[in-house]
Computed example of a mutant assay.
Amino acid sequence: MLEIRSQGTLTAKGKTLSGYAAVFNSEANLGDFQELIRPGAFAKSLATGSNVRALYHHQGDALLGTTKGNTLQLREDSHGLAFTLSLPDTTHGRDLAILVDRGDVSGCSFGFRVAPGGDRWEQRGAQLVRELLAVDLMEVTLTADPAYQDTTVAMRSRPHQQTHVDLNALWLQTA
């Protein structure tokens, strides 16, 4: 069963988005239970080199990039699951860049399957708590409605490259 979790704050600059699709040790209220992701939860999945997709709102037809295509880079650090995404020049990519820049889309989500023995459940008073210890990562998603509010996305800008156009040289090339 594929599980989906949403989180945080996105930033966009130019055509590259970066942020955190998951933040470690941050609790999310999922209704019937609280959930948190422990450091190392994505390590085994990332080490396999399996293809992970970047999507908009978990929609398969809104593909933004893949690890296989090297347009999505993922890594675990001490804070969580960091990503860098090179946006495509597609309707979804252009629209998302605008939405992130405006602050309308500022969070992330991820789709996963729990690896065998990859979670731990604990009753803490009246609250049931699930800890994610090892998951098989299937996708990261950019969303306006994250479950984990600590996730982030940001636009990274490239320096503006001013180009000089030599109109005489262009004219000579056509003559």
Rank of each mutant, 00 (worst) to 15 (best):
G65C: 03
N168L: 12
S157F: 09
T143A: 03
G8F: 00
R53C: 10
L133F: 07
D119N: 13
S86K: 14
L74D: 06
V165I: 09
Y148D: 15
L30P: 00
T163I: 14
G93H: 02
A126T: 12
F24S: 02
H57W: 06
L64I: 06
P88V: 05
T91A: 15
D136I: 05
N168R: 14
V153I: 07
T152M: 11
Q173D: 13
G111M: 07
F33D: 08
D119F: 08
L64E: 13
A54S: 05
L55D: 02
S157I: 12
D104S: 09
T141R: 02
F83W: 04
L99F: 11
R124V: 12
S26N: 12
T11P: 03
L17P: 07
M155P: 10
L142I: 08
L36D: 03
S106F: 07
A175S: 11
G40R: 04
G125Q: 08
A41C: 01
Y148S: 14
D145T: 08
T84G: 09
V135F: 04
T67I: 08
C108Y: 01
L72F: 05
A21K: 04
P159A: 11
T84Q: 11
T11R: 10
L2C: 10
A41R: 00
G49A: 01
R124D: 14
Q123L: 15
F42L: 03
L170I: 10
T9V: 07
A126L: 12
T71N: 08
L63Y: 10
T163C: 14
D61G: 04
A28G: 03
A21R: 00
T67W: 05
G60M: 15
L170K: 09
C108E: 08
A47Q: 03
G40E: 05
L64K: 06
G8C: 03
T163F: 14
Q162R: 12
G103Q: 03
R120Q: 12
